[in-house]
Design a protein around this nucleic acid. Structure first.
Length: 476
DNA sequence: AAGAGTAGCAACCGCAGCGCG
DNA sequence: GCGCGCTGCGGTTGCTACTCT
């Protein structure tokens, strides 16, 4: 690539003139030549890093300052570690991503010799690879490790006081936990007293949404000073996810989930102002307001709701409409979701769920709802219930989250490697008429609880990470 | 053997934060 | 306080090599 001076003068002169580009002409793009590298290295050796635009001006390179900076940072600077990512580095990257999300620059500090670009590329490749294989993004041990670390570092009090691992939380002084009523959930609560979910706040709040949703839903949901495109995307996601969370879901009332609970709010997609879901009206601040005012709440709400989404009840759109949903062009209802071709499919589906949820509120799908509600709230109490009830929701033969997705079952209740075992037909499951493949719930042993619960959470998340199933990329 | 598909990598683009005048 | 330029970051795109059919 580069030799610190092994080039003849003609090559350097050519590089200085920008090849076929004049020195004052347009800046050169594309791959760097050895001659350009040599010039850059020479200049930085003499003058040091920084002032990249000056480098462009004074070195004669026909490259913009930022390009020089990137070239130096990613390829030319000393102490760069070349070669493939080692298993140990991979493990570290996974850990860091679980903690930090797509904060490549921060990860660099923990991975000397590697560049943010390298890490980013590695991660993106890894994501693709694991999605293809139907594997969870995060190994269970990583989930547990992050969980344990967060448990050590943070409790609810520190979270609320801002003394957390994620300083972003502390930077929001107006983090409010609005009181939320779930009127429509009362009946459910009678039936299913919300048990305490045995998931500490840290696992829900400290694993950035960007980690959980990266590449699948939104790349930068993690509270960040940078919102940019993801902000608008988040708004759409916000709207859709707000809506798809059934109003009747009675969140457990421990601290962590209360936070999530407080964001189960209506959205602009509620086209029925007279909706008889009072929980989705005045008592709850608008998601958008919350989210604009406190980006951390994005994390909390999204993460938690995504967890809940894993067990969504389905308003039972027909398979036909599911197909329409998946393949139709954006409508006024879905255009907000068209921010990213990768995301639109999932968000369309979520939106559709939302619409049908509203439209079918009078339908007799309460039992299905209950099943899914239970799947959320039985996590901590009965693994058996968890599997069964989640299974009911997941196995809903008409849900677009299932019926259109053979892959879905690879992300079904328990994170199991679909490569390990061929999926079992849902037909074999009581009450399931879908022809879709399924994975049989596995009895959980004592001691597996924590891991399995987390696996469940991340399996659901992984399912969403695999959301391109909804889109044209993978019309499964 | 050839074309298609995919993986991996390098580089670019656009945005936001920051400092300075 | 405001505008401007610089810098850094994260997402995306494009290219090349490799694999598969």
């Amino acid at each position: 690539m580069n030799s610190k001076g092994g080039l003849d003068s003609s090559s350097v002169e050519e590089a200085r003139s920008g090849g076929n580009l004049g020195e004052n002409g347009p800046l050169k793009k594309g791959p760097w030549t050895s001659a350009e590298d040599a010039i850059l290295v020479e200049y930085i050796t003499k003058h040091g890093e920084g002032n990249w635009n000056a480098i462009q001006k004074h070195s004669g390179l026909a490259r913009c300052g930022n390009s020089c900076r990137l070239r130096w940072a990613n390829h030319l600077r000393p102490n760069l570690k070349k070669g493939a990512i080692t298993p140990e580095e991979e493990r570290r990257i996974i850990e860091l991503h679980a903690k930090l999300g797509n904060k490549w620059a921060q990860m660099v500090a923990e991975l000397p010799g590697r560049t943010d670009n390298e890490i980013k590329n590695f991660w993106n490749t890894r994501i693709k690879r694991r999605q293809r294989a139907g594997l969870p993004i995060y190994p269970a041990e990583t989930c547990l490790q992050v969980l344990n670390e967060n448990q050590r570092n943070m409790d609810l009090g520190t979270f609320l006081s801002g003394n957390t691992q994620h300083n972003d939380f502390s930077m929001n002084k107006n983090f409010l936990i609005p009181t939320v009523e779930f009127k429509s959930s009362e009946a459910n609560q009678h039936l299913y007293t919300p048990p305490r979910i045995d998931i500490p706040p840290s696992i829900l709040l400290n694993i950035p949404a960007s980690s959980l949703l990266s590449q699948g839903l939104n790349s930068t949901l993690y509270p960040s000073k940078r919102l940019r495109g993801s902000e608008s995307l988040f708004h759409s996601l916000n709207a859709t996810v707000c809506d798809v969370l059934p109003d009747g879901i009675p969140f457990p009332t421990n601290g962590s989930v209360q936070i999530a609970q407080s964001f189960a709010v209506p959205s602009a997609y509620d086209h029925n102002p007279n909706s008889d879901h009072p929980a989705s009206s005045s008592a709850i601040p608008d998601c958008h307001d919350i989210l604009k005012g406190n980006s951390n709440s994005e994390l909390a709400s999204i993460q938690t709701r995504i967890c809940s989404l894993g067990s969504l009840s389905s308003p039972l759109p027909s398979p036909e409409t599911v197909n329409t949903l998946i393949w139709s062009t954006p409508t006024e209802n879905t255009q907000l979701c068209s921010l990213s071709p990768r995301n639109s499919g999932l968000l369309d589906a979520v939106l559709y769920e939302s619409q049908n949820l509203k439209n079918s509120k009078d339908n007799s799908c309460q039992q299905t709802s209950h099943a899914s509600v239970m799947s959320v709230h039985t996590v901590g109490t009965s693994s058996h219930d968890l599997h069964e009830t989640q299974w009911e929701a997941f196995g809903n033969p008409i849900s677009p989250l299932v019926s259109s997705l053979p892959l879905f079952n690879e992300y079904a209740p328990i994170s199991r490697n679909p490569l390990d075992e061929p999926p079992q037909s849902v037909d074999t499951m009581p009450g399931c008429k879908s022809k879709e493949a399924a994975v049989e719930p596995v009895p959980m042993q004592y001691g597996e609880k924590s891991e399995t619960v987390n696996q469940t959470i991340f399996s659901s998340l992984d399912f969403f990470l695999a959301s391109n199933c909804f889109g044209p990329e993978d019309p499964c």
